[in-house]
């Protein structure tokens, strides 16, 4: 079974984010790393391919400047190869533009299963996977917290407001995974060394047959109007626990009439 995993390479979330003053979009000019949210999808894909008795896991990513840092991490985990779409024309792409690129890249490998995170850590739009599925004319099951593949179908526990739905869907299909669905492996030293020579196919917008006006800032058809300081929430009283802090909390709860 061949699995494609959509992975995003993002600025280190531990570093404070910054807006480009001219476009008011998030700066992405530093080094990019594998989005943690995607490590679950990579791990899931590796396990499913393994359980199916073979097949390849291919990473699909769109990133500026031919960035491969995050892809190497996922290749080190065990993915076989990667497709990276990197093109100056893609700067300023929104979720739909990104979905067009990912869908076109996925089409080239015709996978049995497409795996993505429910949303990225930096942009957290959360619509790209459904957009990819629609563009591919594929069924999708989003918010999976358990996945099995058997007899040409994927069986998923899909998160709902009330609990979860057991959903079955014939392949090929797209599934999005929630964090914690599996425990992502740490790349081994051997894996890291092997990743260095694994193939990363780098493509341009033209290679995908996409119209450049459909992607990037022009295709996004949206603009940031302004950024303002939000109403500040003031810090209140801070007490250091000397063995009696619970009494202060009780008093506060009484004041709020919670108790």
């Amino acid at each position: 079974m061949n699995v494609a995993v959509c992975v995003k390479q993002i600025p280190d979330p531990a570093a404070p984010g910054e807006l480009d003053p001219s476009t008011l979009t998030l700066k992405r000019d530093g080094k990019l790393i594998l989005d943690d949210s995607d490590s679950y999808g990579v791990e899931m894909a590796l396990q499913l391919a393994d359980q199916a008795g073979g097949g390849e896991v291919t990473l699909v990513s769109m990133a500026p400047r031919g960035e491969t840092g995050g892809l190497r991490t996922a290749l080190a985990m065990g993915a076989a190869k990667a497709i990276l779409v990197s093109d100056d024309a893609l700067a300023g792409s929104d979720a739909l533009g990104t979905a067009k690129v990912l869908a076109a890249a996925i089409k080239r490998i015709s996978p049995d299963l497409v795996v993505a995170a429910t949303e990225s850590t930096d942009g957290y739009t959360g619509t790209t996977p459904a957009q990819v599925a629609e563009l591919l004319g594929m069924p999708s099951v989003t918010f999976a917290n358990k996945i099995e593949v058997a007899d040409g179908a994927v069986r998923v526990h899909r998160q709902t407001e009330a609990g979860y739905d057991e959903v079955e869907c014939p392949l090929p299909a797209l599934v999005t995974v929630t964090a914690g669905v599996v425990e992502p492996r740490y790349p081994s030293f051997k894996g890291i060394m092997a990743a260095k020579s694994k193939p990363i196919e780098e493509l341009k917008v033209a290679d995908l047959g996409l119209d450049p006006t459909q992607v990037g800032a022009a295709g996004a058809r949206q603009e940031m109007v302004s950024v303002e300081e939000a109403e500040e929430r003031q810090a209140g009283e801070v007490v250091v626990d000397e063995g009696d802090a619970h009494e202060r909390i009780i008093a506060f709860l009484e004041q709020l009439k919670v108790i």
Partner: peptide, 24 residues
């Protein structure tokens, strides 16, 4: 709304109509 089904509908509608979507 930002719900499990809501995001599916919004994403698919966006792709079907070729219209962008603003979220959060």
């Amino acid at each position: 709304a930002t719900t499990y089904d809501g995001r599916d509908v919004a994403g698919r509608l966006s792709a079907r109509l070729d219209r962008p979507v603003l979220t959060n």
